[in-house]
Design a binder for these strands. Sequence first.
RNA 1: GCCCUUGUAGCUCAGUGGAUAGAGCAGUAGUUUCCGAAACUAAAGGUCGGCAGUUCAAGUCUGCCCAAGGGCACCA
Length: 586
Amino acid sequence: MLSGLSPISESSLSMIFAGYSIRINPRPYYKRTNMHEFFLPVIQSALRSAGIDTDKQIIIEQPADKKFGDFSTNIALLTAKECRRNPRELAHEIIGHLVFPPDTIAKIEVAGLGFINFYLTSLFIMRSLRQVLRDGDTYGKGTVGKGKTAIVEYVSANPTGPLTIGRGRGGVLGDCIANLIESQGYEVTREYYFNDAGRQMQILGESVRLRYQELCGKTIEFPDTHYQGEYIRDIAEQIYNEHGAALAENDEVLTFKNSAEAIIFSSIKKTLARLSIRHDSFFNEHTLYTPDAAGITANQRVIDALRENGFIADYDGATWFLTTKLGQEKDKVLVKSSGEPSYRLPDIGYHISKFERKYAMIVNVFGADHIDEYPDVIEALKILGYDTGRIKIAINQFVTTTVDGQTLKMSTRKGNADLLDDLIDDVGADATRLFFIMRSKDSHLNFDVELAKKQSKENPVFYLQYAHARICSLLRMALQETGFDPASSEDHKLLELLTSPSELQLGFALLDYPDMIKTSVRLLEPQKMVEYMHSVAELFHRFYQEFPIIKAEPDTMKARLFLALATRQVLRNGFRILGVSAPESM
RNA sequence: GCCCUUGUAGCUCAGUGGAUAGAGCAGUAGUUUCCGAAACUAAAGGUCGGCAGUUCAAGUCUGCCCAAGGGCACCA
């Protein structure tokens, strides 16, 4: 009697969507997905059967508009020309050769100029969600880095003063990048490169000495070129409290420099710790100035090696890296006429050390003010035969802060720079971290301090954390009222009961998490994660708003609790990478 | 003068050569006898800085111009 009808459980997303007038159009937070691995071999094999031989890359993307399917490929458009075929006709032929596993694809169609659009079955989506529940905390982890090591260098501020807000952005960015890379199986070293021996440190010591002498009652003249910040007085006071005026006649800077360095470094580490930023390794630039067993410094070895390759010349009393031979306008000084290396030389040596330590991936995170620094280093490394393809550079643009709608410009010198500690005091660690990475690193960040302090939906930190807390509350309530705990149940098959658009949309988004991370890793861009998590939170709230969960009939209730649990898992895993706390209640 | 980044809705920003350019906030109109309304829904809001070019297809790639931020030291 009903023999002509397909079973309802096989109903396609498109059919379901057609029955609702809801427009579901979440942010296009991704294009390629982990489903790439599902589609790619099928399409490749279809192209082979169709006799299409192309070197064009097969792109599987999620159309911005769901009416064009869950996934889509433009391969017919790309290859039509070389096949001398009409793209739509070609698309139809390719479709004829596509073979998918049963119960996965509900509909395939040719649309537009020759796109092939795929619609997944709800069954496929909901079945796949079991993986989220099964993998738990490891859901989303990748394996490409297994057995490989990576080094991420970030912060790297010399201990001349407290960390500024600008440094904070780089610090958080670096930390998130390290987390991202680690999530793909790499063994990651987080390194901080610093120099406590240069001219700036001398000036620091001198600045402290003068302030100290001032405290001892001496009349001093404090030069403009010295560090003006209030913290110099604080350090001087600490020394004074410890030694009294005993060092008042001491013109030797070293004591002051050493004390200042110790105090400042410890304060920097303290500030970083407040943001959960930790380093495994501190690399002192000065080791490159220290002769090795053969009595030669790393710096000297760099000069010698470059000279052997014909890229060194001595003139005007200095030693130059002949970057004009590489098409640049000017040569660059490696050793000043004073005999001291310029910063470029140890930078090259430092990077050689990263190669010598055999890192498969070398990531440098630094601010836009160092933008001119790395090309010379890369060129030098190339000349010396290193595989510079392993080096990835992440440069973050600067931060301006907005308070009460007024934009404050960052000024690093003269002691009026915004201090990172003050910001954390003001808005808290979670908001500080999230705000630093919620914009693309290439984008000049406008940090709205008032917004970050708001405990309301306008504040994206709270929007994300609220979704997590809400799920926790829901699960607590469910356990209390019904005794059901989805975390300790294996009845995941019940998920297949869920077929409504908002449930499927949410489930679909959760499945995309692993590839979202891969995209973030590839681009060294944690901002993608924030965008994605916002979308997950939004889809959850919509789902939550639309359906009763605890009050639904028992099997449906269980299914929805599984979905909620999977959502919480994805949010939690994402929060871990971003270094933002996942509160159980707020 | 040269180099890097940015320019997309009133504001803050997504947008990986594809289909009618999207969010959040603000503003407008709604949604609570019901699991957390810190939420949700809807309508509205655009010469994608400008001009050329490449492409079947350009916010996206190329060139030039304009504007903002940063960098152009024998400072780091």
